[in-house]
Computed example of a mutant assay.
Amino acid sequence: MPDSAEVFAPTDRSRVRRSHQRAQYDKDAVFAVVDSTPLCHVGYVIDGQPYVTPTMQWREGEKIYWHGSSASRMLRAVKGGIPVCVTVTHFDGMVMARSPFHHSANYRTAMLFGRAHALEDRDAKEASLKIMMDGLFPGRWEELRGNTDQELKATTVVAMEIEDAVAKVRSGPPIDDEEDYATVQCWAGVLPRRAVWGTPEPDPKMDRPHPVPSYLKEIPYE
């Protein structure tokens, strides 16, 4: 069993009640899901109306960050400290069973709960954006011109201390009723799904050819 310091203690909002055997509360499992894709969905409530907004995220320690336009209704709302649920999901395949009831999906998902606040200090905001860029494309930040004061003013970066979180994972073949293995004659198994990067496409407005940077060459293409 992981040490208690390495586990998010289940709470009423994070405890998995259905298929609880797939729940993983240890931090390594949660962070593995979060760190393997930049896309997340931020759930929150404004004036009694629930919203879910897709955005890009990055993590540093036990804080998760996201950013966007300072005019964003979502960011204006969540940076004030309202409760937030951040969800990260990977869809890994269709599970095709011997009955409609036992068809399923293979997936990895994480739900993280907390309250967000805005980074107000200019240097802290820029440092966090650099962490995002370095996590995606190590070395690219140094190739770019810096952010202007106006661009940073127009950008809101929020941080959320992860108060509690859970990962839920399903993998492997279908789980059928025992008698169906012998009596139902049809194909059963998993149709895997994989997300892959395409070949880099150069901007036609580049004034002269530039080689594909090394950090892109290291990404496996389709």
Rank of each mutant, 00 (worst) to 15 (best):
T109M: 13
P83S: 02
S128L: 11
G93Y: 02
R140G: 05
R140E: 09
E120W: 06
A127T: 00
R115K: 14
E142A: 12
P83M: 00
S128Q: 08
A105L: 10
D123G: 01
E120N: 09
H103D: 12
K63S: 14
G81S: 01
K130S: 00
V88I: 14
F113H: 15
W58D: 07
A77M: 08
E60Y: 07
V86W: 07
E126Y: 03
M111H: 15
D123I: 00
C85H: 08
H117R: 14
I64L: 13
S69F: 08
M111G: 09
T53R: 10
G139T: 01
A71K: 12
A118L: 10
A118T: 10
P54H: 15
A116T: 10
A127Y: 03
A77V: 06
F137T: 14
D123Y: 01
V52L: 14
E126R: 09
V88D: 11
D121L: 09
R98T: 05
T109R: 12
V95Q: 05
F101I: 01
N106C: 14
A105S: 13
V52H: 13
S69M: 04
G80V: 00
H102A: 13
G68M: 08
G114V: 03
G135P: 03
A127I: 00
R140L: 07
A118M: 12
V84K: 05
G68L: 07
Y65C: 15
L119P: 13
H102M: 10
R76Y: 05
T55W: 12
A124W: 06
